[in-house]
Design a protein around this nucleic acid. Structure first.
Lengths: 193, 193
DNA sequence: TCAGCTTGACTGAAAATTCAGTCAATGTCA
DNA sequence: TGACATTGACTGAATTTTCAGTCAAGCTGA
């Protein structure tokens, strides 16, 4: 069985997905986790402590589902791997929804909270670079600069679509189709180099 | 002189740009607008009412600065007009920064606040359609569906880049360059139809 | 028994919302 | 004209609500 703290963090991820980081109420979290508010303060120092641990928890979990190192999977071509990595962010599973939602919240909060910016910028950069590498495998002759630009656009596009998906103004299937087309279009653009 | 409600809405846009939607305090808004808290409730039902009207206000204002109907300007080609409309969202002027910031916040809040979703979805749709029409003028032979998809991608891209710009992880010039390239790539993609 | 876990009622501060009353402008009628 | 009535924007102190965080007391397994 999951430990009490894990139980609380899982519940926190669900509450954040439902209400947002800024909408998380400690009492609602307690109910969701099936514990008392007191216990939450017993395990975590304060509300900020809850958020910090939850974001860490969510991040660890994201690495798990983003990982393409599944030994059972057949080896993918570079193009397929690129598609898979990008589309992983747009899946209607509770886990991905929770992660995207928390990510979006974090990004939005960073606009007003300089403390968050550094972590966020680093994480974004890492993602962009990963995508740039995958693009480079699809089009080995493209210049590093053009690969970097295309990667920045694809990742920013996914963030934009993700927001629309989460706010219910875009269906998940349509969002995925748009990303697939975007990859085609961007890869075609790289071919011109 | 602007009416009292307008004065309040202008102040609300400034406060939201500065503190975020969740950071908006009715009393701070009252001070910013140079008005009593009571008056705010006299003109707007409640806090949510303030937010809804501010969203609408921001939207109207964006239309104004997005408008290309400047009698002094020389007539633009369709491609130039498209570029101009899209790049207007990425300018480092107080008005645009304020609008983008508030817009991003409202978008992020809409993920968790059903009340805002409908207005937001409508405004987004309107923007996408405007861009689709402009794209159609650039590539008159493209199918309506492909125009709509390209417009969805371009607008979502701008929202994604906007967030990164506002959270300080992307320079405005770089963001603009990425959009210009995105237009090229998307227009090239349409040519294939 | 005792140390760590757990509860939930409670507190205080911050924030939203209300409301009784002021004031300037406008309308009305003798 | 001018005395009185009416309206509605506006104020700010009072009230209500919402929350994070605390605490004294109960539980449980080793």
């Amino acid at each position: 069985m999951a430990s009490r703290s894990t139980q609380i963090l899982e519940a926190a991820a669900r509450v954040i997905a439902r209400r947002g980081v800024r909408g998380l109420r400690v009492e609602e979290l307690a109910t969701e986790a099936g514990v008392s508010t007191g216990l939450i303060y017993y395990h975590f120092k304060d509300r900020t402590g809850i958020l910090r641990h939850t974001l860490e928890f969510i991040n660890d979990r994201a690495e798990r589902y983003t990982s393409t190192e599944d030994p059972d999977a057949e080896p993918l071509g570079p193009r397929e791997e690129l598609e898979q990595v990008l589309l992983l962010e747009l899946q209607d599973t509770p886990e991905v929804r929770e992660n995207s939602s928390a990510w979006g919240e974090l990004q939005a909060s960073a606009v007003f909270d300089p403390v968050l910016r550094e972590d966020l910028a680093r994480a974004t950069l890492q993602w962009v670079q990963e995508v740039a590498v995958l693009l480079g495998q699809v089009r080995p002759l493209a210049s590093p600069a053009s690969l970097a630009s295309a990667a920045e656009r694809l990742t920013a596009l996914i963030q934009g679509l993700s927001m629309r998906w989460l706010s219910g103004s875009l269906g998940i299937e349509h969002a995925r189709a748009l990303v697939t087309e975007a990859i085609e279009v961007e890869v075609a653009g790289l071919r011109q180099q």
